[in-house]
């Protein structure tokens, strides 16, 4: 082919076309969000303001539906928040040293260890949760050991208590905490730690002033990835808890599927989402997640 000189208008057109490229690339993502997130959310809000009995709901600006979360389901909301918080803290305490070890001491085993970390995901969520029923069974090894040591009373159980629920949630979401922390530790520039040592920082100071701050994006991402789904979780309670541990997810599920009370279920879902977002804004602001957003 011979080279041809391009005329001005053609160049301009190409430039314009090039400027369009990012938007075109964004299009599938935006369309996806629009169809599978925005439309359902708007629909959800619409349903949440209806009233009536299935299948004849009418749109009546039924704001009362939103009051239900606080008036009727206060204890379930409280359970959701405290279990999710406890599980997130446990995950953080377990995940940070784990991620640290893999990132800094993993050596040639690093990839293997990361794969091991993901191994549980190869097992279905339900089976992972059910396995806790075996671990914590009344006649099981954990309970009998604790009884022998006198930590718990002779008639105490772990299943059907909040201990089992929090353990189940923490276990199920541990990889969501570990992976982001691992990634931020892994990409950390090691020479910064060396520099800190050169400047007479003790290993502890170097950790506190260099490693920890630089791994914060991972910590923030990990806590969000753990806390948000944990608040809405209901499977762990269903399998490991008792009625007094029920969380808001159980209520929403029962409203949608059993009582067919779609308006209240929708109102609860939407309120839950809003509450989580409102709670997390100050957290994200305070911890600073420029890396997370950028």
């Amino acid at each position: 082919m011979t080279t041809t000189t391009l005329h001005e208008p053609e160049l301009a057109r190409m430039a314009r076309r090039r400027a369009m490229v990012p938007y075109l690339l964004l299009l599938p993502g935006i369309a996806w969000l629009l169809v599978f997130f925005m439309v359902p959310i708007l629909r959800l809000i619409g349903v949440s303001l209806q009233s009536g009995v299935y299948p004849n709901y009418e749109f009546t600006w039924q704001w009362d539906n939103y009051a239900r979360l606080w008036t009727t389901y206060g204890s379930q909301v409280w359970n959701s928040l405290r279990f999710a918080f406890a599980a997130t803290v446990i995950c953080l305490v377990l995940a940070y040293p784990l991620a640290y070890f893999i990132a800094f001491r993993g050596g040639k085993w690093k990839n293997f260890l990361v794969v091991m970390l993901l191994m549980p995901f190869l097992m279905p969520f339900l089976l992972r949760t059910l396995s806790w029923k075996i671990i914590l069974a009344d006649e099981g090894i954990v309970v009998s050991t604790l009884k022998t040591l006198g930590v718990i009373g002779p008639n105490a159980t772990l299943l059907a208590t909040s201990v089992a629920v929090v353990a189940g949630i923490a276990y199920n979401f541990l990889p969501f905490m570990t992976l982001p922390i691992y990634v931020s530790l892994e990409k950390l520039d090691r020479s910064l730690i060396e520099a800190a040592a050169d400047l007479y920082a003790t290993p502890r100071e170097a950790f506190r002033k260099v490693t920890l701050p630089l791994s914060m994006p991972g910590v923030v991402a990990g806590t969000l990835l753990t806390f948000i789904p944990a608040v809405g979780d209901y499977v762990n309670v269903l399998l490991l808890g008792s009625p007094s541990e029920f969380m808001i997810g159980n209520v929403i599920q029962s409203r949608f599927l059993v009582v067919l009370d779609y308006p209240v279920a929708a109102a609860l879902s939407f309120t839950l989402m809003t509450v989580i977002v409102l709670m997390l804004i100050p957290y994200v602001r305070a911890t600073g997640t420029d890396d997370l957003v950028a």
Binding site: P40, R43, G249, A266, S269
Partner: peptide, 22 residues
């Protein structure tokens, strides 16, 4: 798990929580 009447809609339930009837 598979048999009857268990875990009222782990699948459908979570979908519902996200997106509702639509």
């Amino acid at each position: 798990i598979d048999r009857r009447k268990f875990l009222k809609g782990v699948g459908a339930g979570s979908l519902l929580m996200l997106g509702g009837p639509a």
